[in-house]
């Protein structure tokens, strides 16, 4: 089943099922140590050690949210400045047009609004969601990933991938079951 790098592999990858989080964490570390990089783990709840074992980079999300918040705050303040000072100035007893203390509340609210929107949209964008189709769902037992089972997927496009050897490696790591993942 080995293939040339450019041809499409016959299967999407191999999926191993584990009964406990400890087995998954250990397997993920060993698989990473064995040189596999196109690897993903699936868990019913977030497990920090799995992210460490996969050597995931720090999330870019905080910077996106910071950018969103600054944009929102500036937009909110400039909107108020422009409409109250330039576009529609109202002289009420000679009070200043640029009455910044009165602009604090909408500026604050716009900062939060934009930051929150960038947090949610940014999270979905970084995760590539919505994603209506993913080969992982072709494994019937994968439905348990949202209950109490832990899965490790090694993709066939990984340079080190070899159908038989990779399967043996996963079985050696106490996977209860290893299945082919169709495209």
């Amino acid at each position: 089943m080995s293939s040339t790098p450019h041809a499409r592999p016959e299967i999407f990858g191999l999926m191993a099922e584990f009964h406990t989080a400890e087995e998954l964490i250990e397997a993920t570390q060993k698989v990473h140590a064995a040189g596999y990089h196109h690897v993903d783990a699936y868990t019913p709840y977030p497990i920090e050690e799995v992210s460490h074992a996969l050597h995931l980079k720090r999330s870019k999300l905080p910077m996106i949210v910071l950018g969103g918040g600054i944009t929102g705050g500036l937009a909110g303040y400039l909107l108020q400045y422009w409409s109250s000072v330039i576009e529609y100035p109202m002289n009420i007893g000679g009070r200043p047009f640029h009455s910044w203390p009165a602009f604090i509340v909408p500026t604050f609210e716009m900062t939060i609004l934009f930051a929150a929107l960038s947090a949610v949209l940014g999270m979905f964008a970084l995760n590539g969601l919505p994603e209506p189709y993913h080969p992982a769902f072709n494994v019937p037992r994968f439905a348990l990933a949202s209950r109490d089972r832990y899965f490790l997927l090694i993709e066939a496009r990984d340079p080190k991938f070899h159908a038989d050897e990779t399967r043996k490696l996963l079985l050696d790591l106490h996977a209860s079951e290893v299945s082919d993942v169709a495209h």
Binding site: Y42, T43, S51, S59, M123, L126, N127, H134
Partner: peptide, 10 residues
Amino acid sequence: RGSAHHWHNY
């Protein structure tokens, strides 16, 4: 699908 990459950002 509960991917570790997703949980990480989530």
